[in-house]
Amino acid sequence: MEAQVLFDTLKGKFGDAVVELQGEGCSPAFVVVAPASVQEIARFLRDDPALSFDSLMCLSGVDYKEKFAVAYHLHSMKHRHAIGMKAFLPRETPSLPTVDDVWPAANFHEREAFDLFGIVFEGSKDLRRILLPEDWEGHPLRKDYKYPDFYHGIKV
């Protein structure tokens, strides 16, 4: 399915929650959505028979310096098409609803985004640090992260 057609479908259904289509230079193209309605839209994308995006390929946190984003890469096993979905978040309070009940695959990705960016996924069934130790300070993939000098007395 063409990204433009998909965008129009979503726009017709969700109105202002669907912000724009980010196609220039992006492959696959991204549908930018409002963070608050991520879960609704995700469920629609999965359940609509014409779309049926049944697999979440990748979920990544991104730090665009002035704001954060969460990017979802979706793929449909049935129709063999792919699309991206993106939600921009403010730097100060990066939080959005979880999608792990839509795609169970999301859980580990969300934990990783939480661990490395500090993005909070509300309603997640298990949101803990996944890669770094529990008592690690800060979120290393943020652009303003300062490398610590010592961790448990060992030079970093």
């Binding site: 290393p140 992260y145 490398y147 610590p148 961790y151 060992i154 030079k155 970093v156």
Partner: peptide
């Protein structure tokens, strides 16, 4: 890297 120990002889 921010999380690699710089040599096991530190431990």
């Amino acid at each position: 890297s921010y999380c690699v120990v710089k040599g096991v002889d530190l431990l």
